[in-house]
């Protein structure tokens, strides 16, 4: 007897709305991975997300669980408050590079220093997407953006910031890894990392962050596939993928 079984369907943690993201934007992929992980772990009902300011500012419309909107960059501070008041809920922030690595640098670093028991999903697409493609702290050297039309000159504009490496030096961090969303194999690896980051929080092991290299086809002025190739060819060499900090107790976790 041959039957058709469903191999993949839209996660339950999504609301039946379309997203406002540009075609081919990997924000959608990252959203989907978070939604799949929440479904698999069965924690959708107790999950509380904290949305940033940036392209993912409307994330609260897309997830079918509780969501709050933080002031620009302050998502980790807000998540800290929520997690301390409601320790039994699963609290996570979803932040872009303009939010986390620029205006919210102090909040994320201090949340890690305090070892807050929250999960952070960090989308690094090397550009400010929402405001029209300006240079971000994560913009690669020599990369052309609307505010660095001659390419990022590190002499005057500084060097890109590598957040995973930076947060891995902090004792309060339990899990800091970098993954990429530029091909199917890496999307699968990203999902495993997100799963582990949520398991860390469920077991009360402390601060967990997953950095996801992401594409911005509109502002990089590429087709969606070219943008992913750019991530794979250029960004991965500047932002090496890997596990920057995995605490021994997290390593022992079987996920």
């Amino acid at each position: 007897m041959i039957e058709m079984e469903v191999v993949y369907s839209r996660p339950e943690s999504f609301t039946p709305t379309t997203t406002h993201y540009c075609p081919g934007c990997t924000h959608g992929t990252a959203h989907r991975l978070v939604a799949e992980v929440l479904d698999e772990m069965g924690i959708r009902e107790k999950a509380i997300g904290v949305a940033p300011v940036g392209c993912s500012v409307f994330a609260y419309d897309y997830f079918n669980h509780d969501f709050v909107e933080a002031a620009h960059g302050r998502a980790p501070a807000m998540a800290t408050g929520i997690k301390r008041v409601r320790p039994n809920n699963t609290v996570y922030t979803y932040q872009g590079d303009g939010d986390l690595a620029s205006i919210g640098m102090a909040e994320i670093v201090h949340a890690a220093i305090r070892g807050e028991n929250i999960t952070v999903i960090f989308i690094n697409n090397a550009i400010y997407g929402m405001t029209g493609g300006q240079m971000a702290p994560t913009t690669l050297p020599g990369m052309r953006t609307t505010s660095s039309p001659g390419g990022r000159d590190v002499e005057t504009m500084g060097y890109p910031v590598r957040m995973s490496e930076m947060l891995s030096t902090i004792d309060g961090t339990s899990y800091a890894v970098r993954r990429s969303l530029h091909n199917p194999a890496n999307v699968r690896k990203s999902k495993k990392a997100i799963r582990r980051a949520f398991e860390v929080q469920e077991r009360g092991m402390g601060f967990a962050m997953v950095e996801l290299l992401s594409s911005c086809p509109t502002n990089l002025k590429f087709t969606p596939q070219q943008a992913l190739d750019f991530v794979g060819d250029q960004m991965v060499s500047y932002y090496p993928l890997g596990d920057y900090k995995v605490a021994p107790e997290v390593k022992a976790l079987k996920v």
């Binding site: 079984e5 191999v7 839209r10 075609p23 934007c25 959608g28 989907r32 939604a35 091909n183 999307v187």
Partner: peptide
Amino acid sequence: VVCPDAAITVYRE
């Protein structure tokens, strides 16, 4: 796996 909008449902025998 690559669909950013979770638009695809996959079936298999």
